[in-house]
Design a protein around this nucleic acid. Sequence first.
RNA 1: GGAGGAUUAGCAUAAUUGGUAAUGCAGCAGUCUUGAAAACUGCCGGCUUUACGGCCUUGGGGGUUCGAGUCCCUCAUCCUCCGCCA
Length: 427
Amino acid sequence: MLDINFIRQHPEKVSLMLEQRQQGEDIAKLNQLLDFDKERRELIKQSDDLKALRNKVSKDIAVIKRSGQGSADDLIQQMKEVADTIAGLDEQLKQLAVDIEEILLSLPNKLHDDVPVGASADENVVWKEKMDFQHDLDFKLSNHLDLGRKLGILDFERGAKITGAGFPLYKGKGARLERALINFMLDVQTGQNGYTEVMPPLFVNQDSLRGTGQWPKFADQVYYMNEDNLYAIPTAEVPVTNMHRNEILDAGELPLCYAASTPCFRREAGSYGKDTRGFLRVHQFNKVELVRYSEPEHSYEALEQILANAESILHALEIPYRVLLLCSGDISANATKCYDIEVWAPAEEQFLEASSCSNFEDYQARRASIRYRPKDGSKPAFVHTLNGSGLATSRLMVALLENYQTPEGTIRVPEALQPYTGFSLID
RNA sequence: GGAGGAUUAGCAUAAUUGGUAAUGCAGCAGUCUUGAAAACUGCCGGCUUUACGGCCUUGGGGGUUCGAGUCCCUCAUCCUCCGCCA
């Protein structure tokens, strides 16, 4: 969330940001917030003054009682009334704090100056294209659904029977290929790119969702287990960024770089009917997630590094892709700046999002209270958090199958993966 | 699932029948020193205030009270034991 002090001092910057994010209607909420904040500060002053009086008189009462001389009854009677007044003020303050918190949690992050202003995804900027990987595709192409079915490696029908639509079942060489991809990506990120591997819980509590920003805004996108009041993770970002919730880190520990492979669960409510075939949109998929905790002054270098780390996978697998710099109207509410990596699926004839690399600055750190001491003995300051997929396997699998298919309907395995699969051809 | 115990600042330890959080270590700054150590002084949870000061803070939430680390309720986590279990 944003710093209430920043909002109070620069309300015009916040409303400009809301307009650029196509959320101009939220400016009313902003004004409401400022009113609440003003009222709250006035009430705090009143309440604090009365508390100071009460503390002082309570000490006097203690002195009288201890000495055994004189009666404190009058003072106690007065303080009863003061206590009632305080209780009334604090009741109002409590409600105001709730109202303020609700608005604060719902306001999106600042935007970085690099972010192009635009109304929708159409105005995202193509930042980079890397299409020059050579695949001989001069024949009638099959899409990943047909390839998966013919080769017996993907079975969406049975996945649907077991659970429901959007829960894929991998079989034989398909399952092995998926496992190879995950292991390969983890090895690259932990070996060459310097990340520490973590294997986090797959269910999280509500505090964790709030910490990373999925709660309250995107609560309807997360699977919820009512009996135990837990949520299935929509991305490893949630458990891994919450590892250090309510902690004060030493400056020497930063940057912290974590890589985690987990399944991700998403309800995708409201998106039925669009690109739902096969892997294009699923409720469960696997992803290697990269998470960094950075000192504020280095977080934009860290963002470029995460992007490069994610790209390194596609270079090794020789899969064509492009990088988008998201515009103000398309970037997620939590991020100040975000790159999307889209892989090219030649049979679908479209780019598919396989990674999103974002800087959140102190937006999540403030929600989750993740701080560090810039120097020994100095005041704690919020860290910057970042993450990027490196990468999501579902869309990557589509691009891999479609780019590596042969005229015979078989799939070649990229050289980098062969040590992991143990075979070089899926037939 | 059941029984008992525990939770105080980065760490470790105190706090009369309820009287308003004490101390040590570590850390930071300074004095001293060629430099360092030692010693000494100050700082050493959060918010607020130009400042003086004020308020809040004993795992979270609630209650009793003029006043709660202390009494009551509730939740969480950890430890010990019993039961169940891959």
